[in-house]
Simulated assay, not measured.
Amino acid sequence: ELNFAQNHSETGVYPSEEPGPCNLDLDPLETITQTYIHSIICAFGLIGNLLVIVTYIFYKRTKTMTDVFLFNVALADLLFVVALPLIIYNEQHSWAMGSVSCKILQGVYSINLYSGMLLLACISGDRYVAIVLARRFFGAHSNTLIYSRLVCSVVWMFAVALSLPTVIFTERFEEENLGVQIVTCQLCINHNETVKVMKVLVPTLQVAIGFLLPLLVMVFCYSKIICTLLRAQSSQRHKAVRVVLAVVVVFIICHLPYNTTLLTHTLVLFKERGCEAERMRLKVLAVTRSIAYLHCCLNPILYAFIGVRFRSHFRQILQDLWCLGKKYISGRSSRGTSDLSISGQKATNGFNISQPHSSFSA
């Protein structure tokens, strides 16, 4: 959800139960709570997605279409968790980094949203082909890496194209509220009809392409995969079914509340509504948005660390880091010991033992 949803100067009149303008700002406690939650999301998202990227670059190598998709999902999530602290800082400090950062950061979020969700749909489609259509397409994917990289390129270009309205029309916007100058980063267009279209079009595209389309693809593909696994005579089928169900359930839990709230907010955007109801709607929007952000931390666990081979590579990373740490510490200690012995020899050579009381002479 982009911050232009809070631009109440162009989205209808709020009949307030209180005298004076309607104050839609979050209270300090909610702001602090959101900051802590987003900081935790950034930390875990950074660690998890960096591990996925390091594993694919130095240990596992990309061999299948799913590997390429997972690598790009980790890149998209890493892009988001790096930008999130800057977004939080600017929101709390009146976009002190200026109009350019406003455009770039909101554009980065939008690109991550579309690319990440569409890549998850691509992963479900690839698994559908590999499991459900295994016999029909057996031996037909000799150029899987080329196809997967082409698909990823198309996804990233599509995400950039869908994010262009956000980058072009988002501006650092200043307005007066209760005698206080408020600075936000939101859609700011001179033509009133254009801004109305954009304020409806951007959230609608986000819900339709960033949530509903991937959800439909995932439900279709994974339902077929579950049916195929249940028919298979394999001791691992129940575990595989649980993993598939976990992927779909976590996706729905993280994104359904937020997208439902965003869609509701968009539908009433130009209608007259009460100040208190609008405050509550924005609070729910902020809470559900934080829940949606959690998905970038869960993606490495759901799509990568569940795999046995990936876990073995992860353990290898930890072992290598442990060995490097031990070598560094032993190297420091050995250098310290040698420096101590050298300095001791210098002190001994500089001290005249033939005159033991010379240093205490008055």
Rank of each mutant, 00 (worst) to 15 (best):
R136H: 13
L119S: 02
I168Y: 02
I146M: 03
L162F: 11
A121V: 10
F169L: 01
L178P: 03
A134P: 01
D126Y: 07
S163Q: 07
V108R: 04
I146A: 08
Q181K: 10
L187A: 01
V155D: 05
L145W: 09
N143R: 13
L164F: 07
M117E: 03
N177I: 14
I123D: 12
S115K: 09
M157A: 14
L118Y: 10
T166W: 04
I182E: 02
A159G: 06
A130N: 01
W156S: 05
Y114K: 00
I131P: 05
C152N: 08
I168A: 01
N190F: 15
V132N: 12
S163E: 02
F137I: 14
G116C: 09
V154M: 12
S148R: 06
Y128G: 04
A159R: 08
I146K: 13
A121R: 08
R172D: 00
I131H: 06
Y147H: 07
L113H: 08
L164C: 06
P165D: 05
E174S: 13
A121N: 12
S115Y: 13
C152F: 12
V167T: 03
Y114D: 01
M157I: 14
Y109A: 02
H141Q: 05
I146T: 08
N190A: 08
S142V: 12
M117C: 03
E175Y: 15
C122V: 04
G179T: 05
S124A: 11
M157N: 06
L150D: 04
R172C: 07
F169I: 01
L162D: 00
A134W: 11
W156F: 15
A130Q: 14
L164E: 00
V155A: 06
G125I: 14
V167G: 00
F169N: 05
S148Y: 15
P165A: 12
A121Q: 08
S163G: 07
I168T: 06
G179Y: 06
A121L: 13
L187Y: 10
A159V: 02
M157E: 03
A130F: 06
